[in-house]
Amino acid sequence: MQHQSTFERVLRGVLIALVLVFFMFPIVWILLMSFQTNEQILRIPPSLLFEPTLENYRALITGRLETHAGTLDIRFMQNLWNSLILSVFSVALALVLGVPAAYAFARFRFRLGEDIAFTLLSFRFAPPLLVLLPLTLYFQDLGLSDTYVGLVWVYQLICLPLILWIVRGYFEDMSPDIEHAYRTAGHGWLTTFRRISIPLTAPGIAAAGLLAFIFAWNNFIFALVLASADKQPVTVGALAFVTASGIQYGQIAAAIVLSITPTLALALYAQRYLVEGLSLGAVKG
């Protein structure tokens, strides 16, 4: 790498810039759109020079959108809140259930163990619509449709297999003798699980949790079918911006910016933690 000509360095810089522009452009454009009015957005040709407005954000936060066709109620903040509740509780439940299960699958051989693990994984590749129709009927009978509990339950189809399979791999990579060493030092099984197994796989658990959170946050179809307006997450709520009088591009852009913020913040926070964890366990055995 030391013997690099100027040409190579320039070429590399250009290529990196191209890749960055390609991937960052839509995000930057959305950010710009979120500060423009619908008229400014739809202007042809589009211009980078505009007078920024916070009108879109104001409308989202106050929940009232004034257009020339009249006022429109939007429940974006409620949707954002729903997304947060659904994702956080789904991931929390999936961790509580999935981490011990992953440990069991990694450490113990039991009858039908592999079959159960694979069945759980298969939830990930079954199309959601396959289960949605019967689920809708059951949920109506059970009184679970349009409740947080019901949605968190269904979200386990997304989160649980993910956490189970990722965390299982981390447990399998960890030598059981580290646990054995701790147990011979006078500690019970549960203490060992809490004090050794979980901390040593924490980076993996965090990564799986983050991934599960993103998947849960981005879910659309389950919430679309099983939740009504006051339980809808942002993914479904965004449909409200497609109105009879036109599409509210400015609000959509602002909504997108607001809705990716929590995931982005979480990812940035977790990234620091992930790196720290990885450097601790970098050399195994």
Partner: peptide, 20 residues
Amino acid sequence: EPPARRNVAMAFEGYSLYPP
């Protein structure tokens, strides 16, 4: 008995030190 109550110490072939 569980390992914790056997009062044995063990050195493992794979070392198994606590990484942190």
